[in-house]
Simulated assay, not measured.
Amino acid sequence: MSDRDPFTAPEGVRLQKVLAAAGVASRRVAEQLIVEGRVRVNGKVVTELGSRIDPENDLVDVDGTAVQLDQSKRYVMLNKPTGVVSSMKDERGRPDLRRFTNEWPERLYNVGRLDAETSGLLVLTNDGELAHVLAHPSFGVTKVYIAKVEGRVTPQTVQRLLRGIDLEDGRIAADKARLLSSSTEGGGSLVELTLHSGRNRIVRRMMAEVGHPVVELVRRQFGPLHLGTLPAGRARELTKVERGALLTLARRATGDAPEPRDGSDPRSDQENE
């Protein structure tokens, strides 16, 4: 983040022009947003229409949501199907992620991993800083999984997942857990787990430890991103709203943005196997 003062810096590009180029609003509407005090540059409210910024270094947010100024960065959501490994080039020749990135000229990388048997939401990007925040467990970005498991899961088992269980690599507890369905006739159960851990195959190991091996596993949510109705094997670019949510999360996690004005938790609307 730049230490320049946007109120006094004579160089750079006019703020309303930057906002319009980023797709936030037309230049006239962007001017209104500035005058109303809804735009911040490097955490400071800017209300002067003559303000100029450096789009390559300054951080801008509107109503507390980060604005993507670097248009070279690409953010893609993939619904990874089963049978595909989370790698851009698999040395063993297994199906990998390259088949899903052909339409984008940038060299994209996956954020974190889903094992071959797990399907669901995977983020592909060329933004290394954002990828680090999303993937590293120290930043607390949550992921939500739906697991179809063997046996009838009881409320007591759900409470055990929440209290924590001991695995060979240490104790682990779900951030949230709830039972979606449980068959009384041997049809298995559906469990929703929310975790911020990035440990290998953690959901499968947790459920096996409590006596309910995973039959099918899908990741439905990653941070503020929801899989929605995206079909398996399809990829799409994130919307402007989704990009803003991701960038806002990343800036707050690294201390490059002020807290939201309403005092809400930036992770309250969020979700590696």
Rank of each mutant, 00 (worst) to 15 (best):
residue 141 V to S: 07
residue 97 L to V: 05
residue 98 R to V: 10
residue 97 L to Y: 06
residue 205 R to E: 08
residue 26 S to Y: 02
residue 159 Q to K: 14
residue 226 H to E: 14
residue 207 M to C: 00
residue 267 R to S: 05
residue 12 G to S: 03
residue 160 R to V: 14
residue 75 Y to T: 03
residue 124 L to G: 08
residue 248 T to R: 01
residue 50 G to L: 00
residue 94 R to S: 01
residue 49 L to S: 04
residue 35 V to C: 02
residue 211 G to Q: 02
residue 164 G to A: 02
residue 255 G to E: 07
residue 39 V to N: 02
residue 53 I to D: 05
residue 155 P to I: 11
residue 135 A to D: 04
residue 36 E to S: 14
residue 157 T to V: 15
residue 111 V to D: 08
residue 219 R to T: 03
residue 194 T to E: 15
residue 71 Q to R: 15
residue 94 R to F: 08
residue 118 T to A: 13
residue 153 V to N: 09
residue 96 D to E: 04
residue 114 L to W: 02
residue 193 L to H: 00
residue 81 P to N: 05
residue 242 E to F: 05
residue 35 V to L: 13
residue 208 A to M: 08
residue 171 R to G: 03
residue 84 V to P: 11
residue 204 R to L: 04
residue 133 V to Q: 10
residue 35 V to N: 07
residue 266 P to K: 04
residue 222 F to H: 15
residue 128 G to T: 07
residue 37 G to D: 07
residue 54 D to S: 12
residue 123 V to C: 09
residue 249 L to Q: 10
residue 139 F to G: 01
residue 44 K to Y: 03
residue 51 S to K: 03
residue 190 L to E: 14
residue 146 I to S: 08
residue 174 A to C: 15
residue 10 P to D: 13
residue 61 D to P: 06
residue 4 R to W: 10
residue 173 A to S: 14
residue 155 P to R: 07
residue 174 A to M: 03
residue 108 L to R: 10
residue 48 E to Q: 13
residue 22 A to H: 02
residue 157 T to E: 12
residue 161 L to P: 07
residue 264 S to N: 11
residue 88 M to P: 01
residue 140 G to H: 00
residue 64 G to K: 05
residue 214 V to G: 08
residue 39 V to I: 06
residue 114 L to Q: 06
residue 145 Y to A: 05
residue 130 L to Y: 09
residue 34 I to R: 07
residue 267 R to I: 04
residue 54 D to Y: 00
residue 150 E to F: 04
residue 229 T to R: 15
residue 114 L to H: 12
residue 50 G to H: 02
residue 270 Q to N: 09
residue 29 V to F: 11
residue 158 V to A: 09
residue 156 Q to R: 14
residue 151 G to Y: 02
residue 134 L to K: 04
residue 152 R to E: 14
residue 202 I to G: 11
residue 249 L to D: 01
residue 227 L to K: 06
residue 178 R to H: 08
residue 212 H to D: 02
residue 20 A to N: 00
residue 25 A to L: 07
residue 149 V to R: 10
residue 207 M to Q: 08
residue 170 G to L: 09
residue 71 Q to S: 14
residue 241 V to L: 13
residue 221 Q to L: 05
residue 19 L to W: 08
residue 109 Y to W: 13
residue 64 G to Y: 04
residue 220 R to A: 01
residue 20 A to K: 12
residue 262 D to L: 01
residue 147 A to K: 01
residue 135 A to V: 14
residue 104 W to L: 02
residue 270 Q to D: 11
residue 70 D to H: 01
residue 210 V to K: 10
residue 129 E to H: 12
residue 74 R to A: 10
residue 186 G to D: 00
residue 172 I to R: 13
residue 190 L to I: 12
residue 53 I to P: 04
residue 256 D to G: 10
residue 240 K to S: 14
residue 244 G to L: 01
residue 269 D to T: 12
residue 28 R to G: 02
residue 17 K to H: 14
residue 201 R to A: 07
residue 33 L to E: 03
residue 146 I to Q: 15
residue 260 P to I: 08
residue 161 L to R: 05
